[in-house]
């Protein structure tokens, strides 16, 4: 998939992955990987971006004698998912336009 397009969508995937239940790094990777490949080094900047943008809140929980960082979606984060669905309608229109134009070209 085109990297620019993927980049925008991945942010939403990560938000979606924590939207039902607070989650942590490895779990997010596993959940998101079921639809699109994501590596640790891709996830880190996304989480940092979402955190600094106020879309995610972070807290630590002791797990097996170490700390594990959990991510919780904020109201702003939920709004971002909603915005995505609205933007998606625009994308569908763009998609339709591309299909139509591409067809007339042939």
């Amino acid at each position: 998939m085109d990297t620019q397009l993927k980049k925008g969508v991945l942010d939403i995937c990560v938000l979606a992955a924590v939207s039902r239940k607070d989650s942590y790094g490895y779990q997010i990777i596993r959940d998101v990987s079921s639809c699109v490949t994501i590596s640790e080094s891709t996830l880190y900047p996304i989480l940092r971006r979402l955190e600094s943008g106020g879309f995610l809140a972070v807290y630590s929980v002791a797990h097996n004698g170490r700390l594990r960082k959990y991510y919780r979606i904020t109201d702003t984060g939920r709004r971002k998912i909603k915005d995505f669905f609205e933007e998606w309608q625009d994308l569908v229109r763009i998609h339709d336009f591309i299909c139509q134009e591409a067809e007339t070209d042939e």
């Binding site: 942590y24 790094g25 490895y26 640790e40 880190y44 989480l47 097996n64 170490r66 594990r68 960082k69």
Partner: peptide, 16 residues
């Protein structure tokens, strides 16, 4: 912070 992030995932993988 960065090291902790990767360490955490590594430990989680090993745990799994």
């Amino acid at each position: 912070k960065i090291l902790q992030f990767y360490r955490e995932i590594l430990e989680d993988k090993i745990e799994n």
